[in-house]
C-alpha cells in the first residue's frame, strides 16, 4: 500500500516539475486517410515516429517561455502571434488561477507551437501522422468504422466549442499509449495550411480558397468522419499567427536510431 502511494508521488508532481516530455513509439503502417487527393482516398505508408503521449500543457509552455523570452506574451512580434496569444494567462510569466498547470496550453500560434517543438528536438506532426494516431481508440488501431465512436467524438466536440479545454488524462490512452487526441482540443499540424489547396495551385485565388469550409468537405473521401471534418475546417480557418481557445498542440520526433 505504501509503495503504491510512493509510486503515485512522481505522478502527482509531474504537472509542476517541468518534466521531460513522454514520447511513445508509433509503429510504421499502412493507412487510408479520410482526406482525398485529386478526388481519391489517399492510401499511404507512414514511417515510424514517436509522439508526445499528451498535449503540451500550460506548465510545460511556461517553462518554454521562461527559457525563450522572445516567445513571451508582449515580446513576440505580431507577425508571429496575434493579440490573443496566451491571453488566458494572468501575466506573461504567471498563468494565474483561471488555468490549470495540466490543462493543454491553447491560444498559442502555429509559429509558437512550432518553436516549442523545435526546442525539444521535435516538430509538429504532419496531418497524416496526426490522423493515423487519432484513428485509434483504447482497443483498436483503426476505430473509424465504428459509428458509435464517431458520434461520440462529434458530441464531445460540439458540446465544448469556444471554451478552454479541460485537464488532460481523464480518459484512457489509445492503443499506442497516446491520450486526448480526439475530444479535448484541436491541435496544430505542421502542414495544416496546405490541407485543401486547389489541385492546380496556380489558379488565381487558390490561396484564399484554402480557408473555405466547403472546400474542406469536398476534399473528404470518407464523409462519415464528421468530427475530423470539423477539426480540419477549424484549423483551415486560422492563419498561422492566429490563436484560439481550443487550439493547442503536441509534438512528434523521428524514431531513435539504434
Amino acid at each position: 500500500m505504501i509503495s503504491r502511494q510512493l509510486a503515485l508521488i512522481p505522478m502527482l508532481m509531474l504537472p509542476f516539475a517541468g518534466k521531460a516530455a513522454d514520447y511513445v513509439p508509433i509503429p510504421a503502417g499502412q493507412f487510408e486517410s479520410a482526406l482525398a487527393i485529386a478526388g481519391h482516398a489517399a492510401k499511404l505508408r507512414l514511417a515510424a515516429f514517436s509522439m508526445r503521449s499528451e498535449p503540451v500543457t500550460n506548465a510545460e509552455f511556461l517553462v518554454f517561455v521562461r527559457q525563450h523570452p522572445e516567445w513571451q506574451r508582449g515580446q513576440v512580434p505580431s507577425l508571429l502571434a496575434g493579440a490573443n496569444y496566451l491571453r488566458q494567462w494572468q501575466r506573461p510569466l504567471e498563468p494565474g488561477e483561471s488555468v490549470l498547470p495540466d490543462q493543454p496550453v491553447t491560444q498559442v500560434s502555429w509559429f509558437a507551437a512550432r518553436a516549442y517543438c523545435g526546442s525539444e528536438q521535435a516538430r509538429l506532426p504532419n496531418w497524416y501522422e496526426w490522423e493515423y494516431v487519432g484513428a485509434a481508440d483504447a482497443t483498436r488501431a483503426d476505430a473509424r468504422r465504428d459509428p458509435v465512436r464517431n458520434q461520440d467524438l462529434l458530441s464531445a466536440i460540439e458540446g465544448t466549442s469556444g471554451h478552454l479545454p479541460g485537464v488532460i488524462g481523464t480518459r484512457p490512452a489509445n492503443v499506442y499509449g497516446v491520450r486526448d487526441l480526439n475530444r479535448l482540443l484541436w491541435e496544430w499540424t505542421g502542414d495544416y495550411a496546405a490541407m485543401f489547396p486547389n489541385p492546380d495551385a496556380r489558379v488565381p485565388g487558390s490561396v484564399a480558397n484554402l480557408a473555405l469550409c466547403s472546400g474542406s468537405a469536398l476534399a473528404f473521401a470518407d464523409k462519415n468522419q464528421y468530427a475530423l471534418m470539423m477539426r480540419v475546417a477549424a484549423l483551415s480557418a486560422l492563419r498561422p499567427a492566429d490563436t484560439a481557445p481550443r487550439v493547442g498542440f503536441r509534438c512528434v520526433r523521428e524514431p531513435k536510431r539504434k
Partner: peptide, 22 residues
C-alpha cells in the same frame, strides 16, 4: 517553415513524394 508561414506559403508533402503547395 517559419518563413513559409509569414509569407503565406503553404505546402504539404504528398504520398508520392511531391508537394501540394501554393
Amino acid at each position: 517553415g517559419m518563413l513559409a508561414g509569414v509569407l503565406g506559403i503553404a505546402y504539404r508533402q504528398l504520398p508520392g513524394g511531391g508537394f501540394s503547395h501554393n
